[in-house]
């Protein structure tokens, strides 16, 4: 039961990084790939309908940690106090930026909030998890730089996949630049782990670069998503043995009754969530075009 809940939590974090990973990348790169307000709007509209639902993966992952491994939840978030504070600041300014930018006279502040609020958590989540694994500042910096670069790459590929025209062309170029940063960072960051998923993640990043070069945007997106899945898997394989210094999963876990109840609830509800979130992506499957300013 403890292992099952660890797997579910790893799954929720993976879902979060895959989904919000491209939200972060789009938020970061929108000002880079857009040359005018209409293109900026076009870029951000690719994530407009889905970003909030994607963020709930984080809320669920953290809620599940709280319920299934209270001491782990409490230990992680009180140990990385300032980092988590800054992540929250990022998520706040990004959220209001995305929701408000269509309703303000001058969306410049919102765009700034979206960019900073996407970059900050994209960097800090990597830093927190690397610090959790290796307990060293250089490793944290490296981890942060790695997740920032991967989110940028993932977001650029997503933009290329979901837009038309100039934005699509610039997004492909941005993806090439981002992968030039992401691959060397991956070599340093993931070779610390050295496990099979970590190595496979590097391969997936390389494949994504080749695919975006050959304009296979759908496959490239699958490859960046696979890289994030594999990297998260590699991290959680380590965390399983040592979720926090001086703490084991068994010590941190809730009782068998709670875990059983949670399992039923999760097994019944998660399929519904996957179906209706999947349906959202189906509804908004078309590429976003530049719309004339309204």
């Amino acid at each position: 039961m403890i292992d099952l809940w660890f797997v579910i939590i790893a799954f929720l974090w993976t879902g979060y990084f895959v989904l919000e990973g491209f939200d972060f990348g789009v938020g970061l790169l929108a000002p880079v790939v857009s040359r005018n307000p209409a293109e900026q709007r076009q870029s951000l509209q690719t994530i407009g309908p889905v970003w909030d639902g994607n963020e709930v993966w984080l809320i669920t992952a953290v809620g599940a940690m709280f319920a299934a491994f209270p001491a782990w939840y409490a230990g992680v978030f009180s140990s990385f106090y300032l980092q988590v504070t800054l992540i929250l600041v990022g998520l706040i300014v990004r959220g209001v930026g995305l929701e408000w930018r269509g309703k303000v006279r001058n969306p410049l502040w919102c765009d700034l909030g979206i960019m900073v609020g996407s970059g900050l958590p994209a960097f800090l989540w990597g830093a927190v998890f690397a610090d959790l694994l290796f307990d060293s500042a250089p490793a944290a910096l490296l981890g942060g730089a790695f997740t920032l670069a991967v989110c940028a790459l993932h977001g650029a590929v997503f933009l290329a996949l979901k837009t038309t025209g100039q934005v699509r062309r610039r997004a492909r170029a941005a993806a090439m630049t981002a992968s030039a940063a992401a691959i060397p960072l991956a070599v340093f960051a993931l070779s610390n782990l050295g496990t099979f998923p970590a190595l496979a993640a590097m391969a997936a990043l390389a494949a994504a670069t080749a695919l975006i070069w050959r304009r296979r945007e759908g496959w490239a997106f699958a490859a960046t998503a696979a890289a994030i899945v594999l990297a998260t898997l590699a991290v959680f394989m380590e965390l399983r043995l040592r979720p926090l210094p001086g703490l084991t999963l068994a010590e941190a876990a809730s009782g068998a009754y709670t875990l059983t109840m949670l399992s039923w609830i999760g097994l019944i509800t998660l399929p519904f969530v996957l179906v209706y979130q999947g349906w959202t992506y189906w509804v908004f499957r078309k590429r976003v075009r530049v719309a004339p300013a309204n």
């Binding site: 709930v56 209270p70 409490a74 709670t258 209706y276 979130q277």
Partner: peptide
């Protein structure tokens, strides 16, 4: 101290309510 009890409704809130609301 409370996670075993208090965490369950929080996790249920995310799974049953927040996903639906935001999506």
């Amino acid at each position: 101290f409370v996670g075993d009890v208090f965490g369950a409704p929080l996790a249920m809130e995310a799974l049953l309510a927040f996903f639906m609301e935001s999506t």
